[in-house]
């Protein structure tokens, strides 16, 4: 499928772009390997998102997702903003092409990270229910997207992963050496 009109609107006229120098919380996700990077900045007043700004390096979907997430979260109580899911983000945009759904994961994750950062700064414990914090607290070693335990493929950046036989961490499949401990990987 192609991008919907709403995706194209948010891509061409993204809302809430920028940096908050005196942010109460900052959330960063992604890296250039997976092609998308997002940074969300939040100002909190009375446990509500008083202001929100973002910057995104990425494709059309990534930019549209960041923009709609900022719009969906602005003015909301923190608890409510934490409930924003990837599915709702994609739905709000009228759908995303299948291979771009991972972008909606990144948007919600970046927002949630910013809220967690705010809470951590205030000494509050991170929300244990945060989506994607699997049993092993697992996240993709490349894009830091959420992963449910040991998966062979990161749902966020679609990089194939395999377990290193020496350090047991996930590393990129098909490489000669583990990116964590440098151990030689067995041939596929």
């Amino acid at each position: 499928m192609n991008y919907t009109d709403k995706v194209m609107d948010h891509f061409q006229n993204p809302r809430n772009v920028g940096v908050l120098k005196d942010a109460d919380g900052v959330g960063k996700v992604g890296n250039p390997v997976c092609g998308d990077m997002m940074t969300f900045y939040i100002k909190v007043k009375d446990e509500r998102l008083a202001d929100i700004k973002f910057q995104t390096f990425g494709c059309g979907a990534a930019i549209a997702v960041s923009s709609i997430v900022s719009e969906m979260a602005r003015g909301k109580p923190l608890g409510e903003a934490m409930e924003i899911t990837n599915e709702r983000v994609a739905e709000e945009l009228g759908g995303l092409p299948k291979n771009k759904l991972h972008c909606s994961n990144l948007g919600a994750d970046a927002l949630h990270k910013a809220i967690e950062d705010y809470r951590a700064r205030r000494g509050e414990a991170a929300d244990a229910k945060k989506k994607g914090s699997g049993p092993a607290g697992c996240c993709c070693p490349y894009c830091e997207g959420p992963m449910e335990g040991a998966e062979g493929l990161c749902r966020s950046c679609h990089i194939e992963l395999e377990e290193c036989p020496v350090c047991h961490k996930s590393t990129k499949a098909g490489e000669d050496a583990c990116s964590h401990c440098g151990a030689k990987m067995p041939p596929a």
Binding site: C34, G35, D36, C59, A62, N99, H102, C157, H158, I159
Partner: peptide
């Protein structure tokens, strides 16, 4: 040639 224009999403 960017990752995002290919379905494989790899650079």
């Amino acid at each position: 040639g960017s990752a995002c224009t290919s379905r494989a999403l790899k650079a």
